[in-house]
Amino acid sequence: MAENKTQPTDASVEEFLGAVEHPTRRADGFELLNMMRELTGQEAVMWGPTIVGFGKYHYKYASGREGDSAAVGFSPRKTNLALYGLTMGPEADRLLPELGKHKTGASCLYVNKLDDVDRDVLAELIRTGYRHTMTEIHRP
């Protein structure tokens, strides 16, 4: 079976975020770095060239495909901030309507800028998403 393309690297998170062109996304990236570091108690790791991740879990699908992924994370893209692992927790359905302006994808949450969302609700989504991933999905 093919190995996942997105793997943890030794690249500098701060250098990656410092090189983000869009000034708002760069500032939001550093804010998310501090917020996720504090809420998860984990240090940030670059996953591939563009994802900042916190924590690590192992998954295995019914198809047999398995691998490792960051428990929560984000990527400051040109058009938005992609946030990973925040929609998986049992509290997400209750919290998302309170978040503010956002979109969701298969397992991602997209926001244009942090000023569009309630930071307290975002913090709770990070906390509950991380806890769910590390205790329910990843059973050490």
Score class of each variant (00 low, 15 high):
Leu32Asn: 04
Glu98Phe: 01
Ala27Ile: 07
Tyr57Leu: 10
Ile51Leu: 13
Asn4Cys: 06
Val121Met: 00
Ala92Lys: 15
Lys5Asn: 06
Arg94Met: 07
Ser107Lys: 15
Thr133Ser: 09
Pro8Gln: 05
Glu14Gly: 02
Val20Asp: 02
Thr9Met: 09
Arg94Glu: 15
Val117Pro: 03
Pro90Ile: 08
Asp115Met: 10
Thr135Asn: 07
Gly29Val: 11
Val20Ile: 12
Thr79Tyr: 02
Met46Lys: 04
Glu14Ala: 06
Lys78Trp: 04
Lys113Cys: 06
Val121His: 00
Cys108Leu: 13
Lys101Phe: 01
Tyr84Ser: 05
Phe16Ile: 09
Lys5Glu: 06
Asp28Ile: 08
Pro49Phe: 03
Pro140Gln: 01
Arg26Met: 02
Asp118Phe: 04
Glu98Ala: 05
Trp47Gln: 01
Phe74Ile: 11
Gly67Phe: 00
Phe16Leu: 06
Pro49Gly: 03
Leu114Cys: 10
Asp10His: 15
Leu95Thr: 00
Ala71Gly: 08
Lys56Asn: 10
Lys101Asn: 04
Ser63Tyr: 05
Gly105Met: 10
Ile126Arg: 01
Asp118Leu: 04
Ala82Lys: 13
Lys5Cys: 01
Val111Ala: 00
Phe16Ala: 03
Arg131Cys: 04
Trp47Gly: 01
Val20Gln: 04
Gln7Arg: 13
Leu83Arg: 12
Tyr130Thr: 06
Arg26Ile: 04
Asp68Pro: 02
Tyr84Val: 07
Lys103Glu: 12
Glu66Tyr: 11
Ala123Ser: 15
Thr104Gln: 14
Glu31Phe: 14
Tyr84Gln: 07
Thr24Glu: 10
His22Arg: 12
Lys56Thr: 15
Leu81His: 07
Ala11Thr: 13
Gly100His: 08
His102Lys: 11
Leu99Phe: 00
Met88Pro: 02
Leu109Trp: 07
Thr133Ile: 10
Glu98Thr: 01
Lys56Val: 09
Val121Ser: 01
Leu81Glu: 09
Gly48Ala: 06
Gly41Ile: 14
Val45Lys: 15
Pro76Lys: 11
Asn112Asp: 08
Gly48Tyr: 08
Asp115Lys: 14
Ala62Gly: 12
Ile126Tyr: 01
Asn4Met: 13
Met134Trp: 07
Glu21Ile: 04
Gly18Leu: 03
Leu96Arg: 02
Gly67Asn: 00
Gly73Val: 13
Lys78Arg: 10
Tyr61His: 14
Lys56Arg: 15
Thr135Val: 07
Gly18His: 08
Met36Arg: 12
Tyr84Asp: 02
Leu95Lys: 00
